[in-house]
Amino acid sequence: MTKVLFVCLGNICRSPMAEAVFRHKVKKAGLEASIQAASAGTGDWNLGKEPHEGTKTILDAHHISYQGMISKLIKLEDFHDYDLIIAMDASNVSNLRKFAANKEDVVIRQLLEFYPERGITDVPDPYYTGNFDEVYEMIDRSCEQLLAWIVQQEKRQT
Rank of each mutant, 00 (worst) to 15 (best):
Asn92Ser: 05
Ile74Ser: 08
Leu31Phe: 02
Tyr115Ala: 09
Glu77Gln: 11
Ala100Phe: 04
Lys98Val: 08
Ala87Pro: 07
Glu77Cys: 01
Tyr128Pro: 10
Ser34Trp: 11
Met69Val: 13
Tyr136Gln: 12
Ser15Lys: 06
Pro51His: 03
Asp133Gly: 05
Thr55Ile: 08
Lys25Gly: 03
Asp78Phe: 06
Lys103Tyr: 13
Glu77Val: 04
Ala90Arg: 12
Pro126Gly: 01
Asp140Gln: 09
Lys3Phe: 05
Asp60Thr: 13
Tyr66Ile: 02
Val106Trp: 01
Pro51Tyr: 05
Ile86Phe: 10
Gln67Thr: 09
Ala148Leu: 15
Leu147Cys: 05
Asp125Phe: 06
Phe22Trp: 02
Ser71Phe: 13
Leu73Arg: 12
Ala38Asp: 15
Lys56His: 03
Glu77Leu: 07
Ala38Glu: 14
Ala38Ser: 13
Tyr128Thr: 08
Asp81Pro: 01
Trp45Ile: 13
His80Gln: 15
Asn92Tyr: 00
Leu73Glu: 05
Ala61Val: 00
Thr121Phe: 00
Gln145Lys: 15
Lys3Asp: 10
Arg14Tyr: 00
Ala61Leu: 07
Asp122Tyr: 04
Phe132Asp: 08
Ile150Pro: 00
Leu9Tyr: 08
Ile70Arg: 14
Pro116Tyr: 11
Gln153Asp: 14
Leu73Gly: 00
Gly119His: 05
Leu111Met: 09
Glu50Asn: 12
Ile58Tyr: 03
Phe22Asp: 02
Asp140Pro: 06
Glu19Cys: 06
Arg156Val: 10
Cys8Tyr: 06
Arg14Met: 02
Met88Gln: 10
Leu5Met: 06
Asp83Ile: 02
Ser91Asn: 15
Asp83Ser: 11
Leu9Pro: 04
Asp89Tyr: 03
Thr2Leu: 09
Glu113Met: 14
Phe114Thr: 10
Met138Arg: 00
Lys98Thr: 12
Leu47Met: 11
Pro126Ser: 00
Ala100Ser: 13
Ile120Asn: 09
Lys27Asp: 11
Ile58Phe: 07
Asp44Glu: 11
Met138Trp: 05
Ser34Ala: 12
Thr42Glu: 09
Ala61Arg: 11
Glu104Ile: 14
Gly10Ile: 04
Cys143His: 04
Val135Arg: 05
Arg141Gln: 15
Ala37Met: 10
Gly41Asn: 06
Leu147Gly: 01
Asp60Ser: 15
Glu19Arg: 02
Leu146Phe: 01
Cys143Asn: 07
Thr121Gly: 02
Gln145Leu: 10
Glu53Gly: 03
His62Lys: 13
